[in-house]
Design a protein around this nucleic acid. Structure first.
Lengths: 353, 353
DNA sequence: CGCGTTTACGTCGTTCGTAACGATA
DNA sequence: TATCGTTACGAACGACGTAAACGCG
């Protein structure tokens, strides 16, 4: 049994049992894979695949079990490679972030720009997904980091790091009667207008829906969109009053008036969720740190590598972080004192415990 | 990076950084290991070992991390091999059981005899250990099954299966005044005599000690021994009254009189603890089943392979199991209907999902 | 007849063991 | 001087890719 054989097995399984396709993906030839699989079956003493004629029809029951453990072997082997890349200070690589549109559009740009500045050779893959698909995708190994927000409940399925708190804002055309108010409208004032908000508000358990129900008021959604820009567009058209994340409004929206949302709409928290049982590259942690400069970088690393889950501080509010941000440049340099080994052969000495 | 390289790394670490010793253990030559480690270091890009002159001085910090993941890789790879051995119905192998002396001497013999009857080619290693060392040894991968007893608390550190309940008995010489009683003595009656019991009763938190403290009585231990036979010997000599597990008394002790222990001494439960995250050979489960025939064999396998922890039934009392035991021969045959694949090349067909 | 798998074969790289060398206590 | 790690070398094995054969739709 070799790592190569297991890699081929997984590749074939992930290619719909098409050996030729799998061969391309692992940069090898089809007869090579064929032979290695045969060799593995011979060593284990039973068939991994059920064949009809010469083509693979299905995994056998035992084959499916082996596949599961093969994935774990390769995962751990990958951990060693990642560890090594970190250790030798390799600055190239790829980073896949799975998140919602709002975060991708309004929260991440600044952080990703910072990462690209610190690690120019890292390819960042931003992978927008529906709210419900994010954590499964992280668990499935499709992403290195998930950025997700929730009101109240702590997300499950990984190492969870609170990044910042945020509130919703009410967005009205300047001409609208609500735009004349100086402070947050009440739930009742809000409830008399048709609203425009995120598609996720449609869901039965959404915090917007819950807040209205708790106040004994009807929630009238004129329309929903996945995208804050779309919401703004339709607010401008007079379709309704916008209710959206404060991160999504900026100086360019001067034709609209943003008011604080009623207190009854609870604060939300944006979290980073990191995969358990998988070593992350340094730049993945750097991304989290760029999003939450209030966290100690060493706490972060300990939370990921060790199993100690520190008691995270109550995260700051988004509106305060905008003010903090320029200062965060300084502590980045302060954190770079970690010793790095150069790669050269003669330079490998001295890398002691 | 190959599985061989990782195996060599672990072997060297487990041999106190003595490559020559490690080479012997993995059935290879010393230069072979030396070269493979060097190759691995080259691929990873940093030193795994700190060398002084030509001898290995210590693991580097990064090397220690790699070692940890290497163990996990090898563990998962071992799982595949174990899985395969089960799948192809290999009946040879070894089974290491770590347990206390009492269980090894009075509980396991019957079960191990049954295993050896069903799997004659399995070498059973019985590994007696002190109570506190058992679970660490299991966690360290030194054993396949731990058999351990406790009063009340459920053991931690693996998949826990309750086997049977048992009570303590009071053992007195026939001539002793306690021997004239027809029923269990009270705690007060017991407390006036010096007692002879297990060494573990010495510990502050032992259930014997707790029971006496709770009754407001003094526990006078004339002596303690690790071994029920020793306890009996000294009871015969009149050193004191024996308090020991009911499993340890049998027909041969007709010169002694065994009474039920006071109700204040709580019942104990003997548990099997199986390692998490490790596939076990069929005969390891067969051992557990032989010890607890009341458990469904399929529940057992599901508890081990799946992560579903079934709600185990309240285990029977040891004294009732002795009566049940002859009947347990029948259901063993009933459980052997599982299909096995022969090993031959042509016979590998038909092994479908 | 095209697609995909298997078989056959030649080449290349790697591993392994033996033997000699070097360093260290 | 004994022990242990490294280097050197030759033999054998194994992996890989090319090319051809085989089944199946």
């Amino acid at each position: 049994m070799t790592l190569t054989q297991l890699r081929y097995l997984v590749a074939i399984a992930d290619s719909g049992l098409n050996i030729t396709l799998a061969a391309g993906r692992v940069h090898a030839t089809q007869p090579g894979l064929s032979k290695q699989i045969k060799r593995l079956e011979e060593e284990l003493g039973f068939l991994l695949f059920a064949r009809r004629g010469r083509s693979l029809q299905a995994l056998t029951a035992a084959g499916a079990q082996v596949l599961g453990y093969a994935r774990r072997v390769l995962n751990e082997a990958g951990n060693i490679r990642t560890l090594a890349a970190n250790q030798r200070g390799d600055r190239r690589g790829r980073l896949t972030v799975v998140t919602t549109h709002t975060q991708a559009r309004h929260v991440l740009p600044h952080a990703i720009a910072a990462i690209k500045r610190e690690f120019p050779e890292v390819t960042v893959h931003l992978h927008p997904a529906d709210e419900g698909d994010i954590l499964p995708q992280l668990a499935g190994g499709d992403a290195d980091v998930a950025i997700i927000s929730s009101s109240g409940a702590v997300p499950e399925g990984g190492i969870v790091v609170p990044l910042f708190r945020w509130s919703r804002v009410v967005l009205a055309p300047r001409a609208h009667q609500l735009a004349l108010k100086k402070s947050a409208p009440s739930m009742r004032e809000l409830s008399v207008h048709p609203l425009v908000s995120y598609a996720s508000s449609q869901r039965p358990g959404s915090s917007l829906r819950r807040a209205f129900a708790q106040a004994g008021l009807d929630l009238r959604l004129a329309m929903t969109a996945i995208d804050a820009d779309l919401i703004k567009t339709y607010v401008r058209e007079g379709v309704g009053i916008g209710v959206l994340a404060e991160m999504a409004v900026n100086g360019e929206d001067s034709d609209l008036r943003a008011l604080p949302a009623p207190d009854a709409l609870p604060e939300c928290i944006t979290w980073a969720v990191l995969p358990r049982e998988r070593v992350l590259r340094d730049y993945a942690l750097a991304l989290v740190h760029a999003l939450a400069p209030q966290l100690d970088r060493h706490d972060l690393r300990r939370a990921v590598s060790g199993n100690a889950q520190p008691q995270w501080p109550n995260p700051p509010h988004w509106s305060n972080m905008q003010r903090l941000r320029p200062a965060s440049q300084a502590d980045r340099a302060a954190c770079e004192g970690e010793t790095r080994m150069p790669i050269g052969k003669s330079a490998m000495e001295g890398c002691l415990v």
